[in-house]
Design a protein around this nucleic acid. Sequence first.
DNA 1: GCCTAAACGTGATAATATTCTCATTAGTGC
DNA 2: GCACTAATGAGAATATTATCACGTTTAGGC
Lengths: 179, 179
Amino acid sequence: MKTVTSAQIAEALDIDATQVRKDFGAIGILGMGRVGFEVCEVCRGIRYVLGFDQTYEGVLIGAGHLGAALMAYDGFDVYGLDIVAVFDNDPKKVGSNVAGTTVKSMRSLKPFIRKHHIRLAILTTPAAVSQQLTDRLVSAGIKAIWNFTPTRVTVPEDVLVRNEHISLGLSQIAYHFTH
Amino acid sequence: MKTVTSAQIAEALDIDATQVRKDFGAIGILGMGRVGFEVCEVCRGIRYVLGFDQTYEGVLIGAGHLGAALMAYDGFDVYGLDIVAVFDNDPKKVGSNVAGTTVKSMRSLKPFIRKHHIRLAILTTPAAVSQQLTDRLVSAGIKAIWNFTPTRVTVPEDVLVRNEHISLGLSQIAYHFTH
DNA sequence: GCCTAAACGTGATAATATTCTCATTAGTGC
DNA sequence: GCACTAATGAGAATATTATCACGTTTAGGC
């Protein structure tokens, strides 16, 4: 029965130990005096709260380098995500193989989403088509968009957009180098 | 002379208008009563504070799909970053072309960094080698690491690590689907 | 030229988040 | 079994952040 203390986690994450205990307490993870927290219990608690144990399917749109990189990454199932199809607008890419999945034509996008009740779409397309594509996705029933394009898209209130605009990270680096 | 009001920015970013004025004021961007902020002035101020006008060179390590995606993206120069070389451990990749740049051998990594006084390294390698590679980079003189591997690396205090662990975003999506 | 209204700048206030303090609990050694 | 120590959990105190309220500034209309 391996255990970990709030102080150890705090040290590793460079935060305050009280913070760790408060957060764990808030999501129902309780420790024991003198020994700390049971590691399995912590993992289970976090996985449960974040919803990693429930699986859901997503489609990826844009079979470029970034799309291929995401398809090749095999760590998403840990978080409950299963990418079941790849779509691309380019006729030359349609039918080709990306990390074991055949690229589908954009014409089949809407029927596919409807048929399989897909709720998540991953966008790795050129920025120019983001909004137009988003509108199509929403009308097809998509409820969450994982947006890797450098564009802010507008969606109805009930749709979640998670922007993965990496230039934010670049800003931190640029700032670091000039101060 | 195009202008924008704090209320407009607040609306677009879904934050409070006072916050916008406070932040702008903190970095020396002042508006005018009745009309708001001059757009050019805002851009210039933000670019100056974040350091986008000063250019710096970086090397990319790992010529896989993700590395290729980053090399192909041409928006980094806006933030002052110039990726001047790509390195990979795989002999089959060394000498090949990635987005117009020839992949170099890892043997030439340290000399290259030293010679060109490179301060930034971008990591798109397998997670297993992250820490070992990081140590090499730091000893070569690297002062900032843009880490795209799903691994937390430890570095000396004077080195900045920016983790671009996309699974954080995935967590948000998983959470959204289960609540 | 003066009045009005829109928008800024800023000090006060409210809300939130973090850290401190300490009583309580549970292993460890004698 | 009992004292001792390391660690939790919770409430108080503190620090930080966000919002409100209001005086000031400036373009536009009459």
